[in-house]
């Protein structure tokens, strides 16, 4: 029983971290229509920045600062913002599918940098000993994990609340206007590029926050945490849950990560040992199919976008 609780706490923490990344992506894609195929790049930047800021000094690495946890989180968000600004200025004017390819390429490049810039990132060895906040105050693993879940939940609620306010604000309405009909929005005097850039940066900041939480939760990051498949996972979460709806983004994270992890359990339980490899391939096929089926038959996701009307109307 305690085992199950302990696993669920762990599982939910991961879900919420992905959920936060999903909320960030939802701002970019769900509300603004900016296709970011490089989610993992900003996630990685957040995670590594956090690691570099908070980890204790290490003679082999140039910049371990050993600063407090909140500085790490804020630093991670700032670094993601800066990266998104640079990327955004260069790419936001591109047509949508070029932007997709450009961001995909950025994700590959960021991953290569984490792998090759050994003196900063630890290279392929990864980054160990990332401190977990307030870890000294808890004696049990479970009690600490429950605390961390609370922390991540608080972050999720904060991001959710902020985004809900943002998308209902005049600024949020402009974003949706651009998504629906850019020409019309431009005709109304809105600088579509500027708004898209703002949404891209803000979304990336949130994704960076998720990366920072990931690093401090697991206590270790390596370049192999940030393969393109992670982008795919986060996108699937958003599509399944329902893009354009923040609750959908969170629900999607729960369902998709649940399926990803649950189907692994199923394969391991049901299939005889000699078919395990095939089972694992079948598992990936199922996830891919789930995504395609959702897109074809339920494109709005489980909970689609709600019509959002300004408080000032009616």
């Amino acid at each position: 029983m305690i085992g199950i609780v302990s696993y669920l706490v762990f599982f939910l923490t991961v879900v919420l971290i992905f959920g936060i990344a999903c909320l960030g992506l939802n701002l970019q894609w769900g509300f603004t229509g900016v296709f970011n195929a490089g989610v993992v790049a900003f996630y990685a930047i957040g995670a590594y920045t956090h690691a570099i800021i908070t980890a204790p000094p290490n003679p082999l690495l140039i910049a371990n600062l050993g600063l407090p946890w909140p500085v790490g989180v804020l630093g991670a968000m700032a670094a993601a913002a800066l990266a998104a600004l640079i990327v955004g200025i260069a790419t936001v004017r591109l047509r949508g599918d070029y932007l997709a390819i450009a961001t995909f390429g950025i994700a590959v490049t960021v991953q290569l940098i984490t792998l090759n810039w050994q003196s900063l990132t630890g290279g392929s060895l990864g980054f160990t000993s990332i401190p977990r906040p307030l870890a000294g105050y808890f004696d049990g693993q479970l009690s600490y994990n429950i605390f961390f879940l609370g922390l991540v939940a608080a972050a999720t609620v904060l991001v959710y609340w902020a985004l809900e306010r943002v998308v209902r604000s005049p600024w949020g309405r402009v974003l949706r206007a651009i998504r629906e009909d850019e020409t019309a929005a431009v005709a109304l005097g809105k600088d579509a590029r500027l708004f898209r850039l703002q949404a891209f940066v803000l979304g990336s900041v949130i994704i960076g926050l998720a990366g920072a939480l990931h690093a401090s939760f697991i206590g270790f990051v390596s370049p192999f945490d940030f393969l393109p498949i992670l982008t795919f996972q986060i996108w699937t979460m958003l599509i399944v849950g329902g893009s354009g709806n923040n609750r959908g983004a969170l629900l999607g994270a729960l369902i998709v990560w649940g399926l990803w992890s649950g189907s692994g359990v199923l394969v391991s339980k049901v299939l005889p040992p000699e078919f395990q490899t095939q089972g694992a391939a079948a598992q990936s096929i199922l996830i891919g199919l789930l995504l395609v089926v959702m897109l074809v038959f339920k494109p709005r996701g489980l909970i689609g976008e709600e019509p959002v009307v300004s408080r000032h109307v009616g």
Partner: peptide, 15 residues
């Protein structure tokens, strides 16, 4: 009980 890590740390840790 054998589980696949898919070469992904997150999947391996979860398993």
């Amino acid at each position: 009980l054998l589980r696949d890590d898919q070469g992904q740390p997150t999947v391996g840790v979860d398993a």
